[in-house]
Computed example of a mutant assay.
Amino acid sequence: MSADEKLDALTEGYDGVSAPAANYRNVTRWGDLLFLSGKSSRRVVDGKLGVDIALDEGKRIAREVALELLLVLREELGSLNRIGQFIELQGFINASDDFKGHAQVLDGASDLLVEVLGAAGVHSRSVLGAVSLRGGQPVILRAVVGIGG
């Protein structure tokens, strides 16, 4: 199954890519690099990991947000097959000050990227805890992706 077919199966019922909420782009291309703006879940989710949201639900949310990133990429490139390498993933986790599962939450997104893209989905990453995120979202992801030859 191709990466596009896998994404279609995982996003059945989705209605396109969410539009930017202000004066910015979902993605900016610079040479063979794509810089993706921060995305959140399309579900209305409001809360903090370690207070309102359990670790396993945080992983599911991170997985959903990674799907948003892939939808943006496919819209920009026409096909996920044009991805040379998913270079970097940054995760921002809205969490209580005693929450320690940031990396495990981000695993939900990392695992999804490898599931859909295979070796091209393996990436470097960083994860940061935040006292708040826009709209009360628990997870926001941004990325840098290289276009293949």
Rank of each mutant, 00 (worst) to 15 (best):
M1H: 14
S2P: 15
A3M: 06
K6N: 07
A9H: 02
A9E: 04
L10S: 02
T11V: 14
T11F: 02
T11C: 13
Y14G: 07
D15L: 09
N23W: 02
Y24W: 10
T28R: 15
T28F: 05
R29T: 01
R29G: 09
R29W: 01
R29L: 04
G31R: 12
D32V: 01
L33R: 12
L36V: 14
S40H: 09
S40R: 15
S40Q: 14
S41N: 08
R42A: 12
V51T: 07
L55N: 10
R60W: 06
R60V: 06
I61Q: 04
R63F: 10
E64I: 03
L73P: 09
L73T: 06
E76P: 08
S79W: 08
N81R: 15
R82G: 01
Q85H: 05
F86M: 05
L89Y: 00
L89M: 13
L89H: 00
N94S: 14
S96P: 09
D97P: 12
D98R: 14
F99M: 02
G101S: 11
G101C: 03
G101T: 02
Q104D: 07
G108Y: 00
S110E: 11
L113I: 04
V116L: 04
L117Q: 12
G118W: 12
H123F: 13
S124T: 14
S124W: 02
S126G: 10
A130W: 06
A130Q: 06
A130M: 08
V131F: 11
G135I: 05
Q137F: 04
I140G: 02
L141P: 02
V144G: 07
G146W: 02
G146Q: 13
G146V: 00
I147C: 03
G148N: 11
G149V: 05
G149M: 07
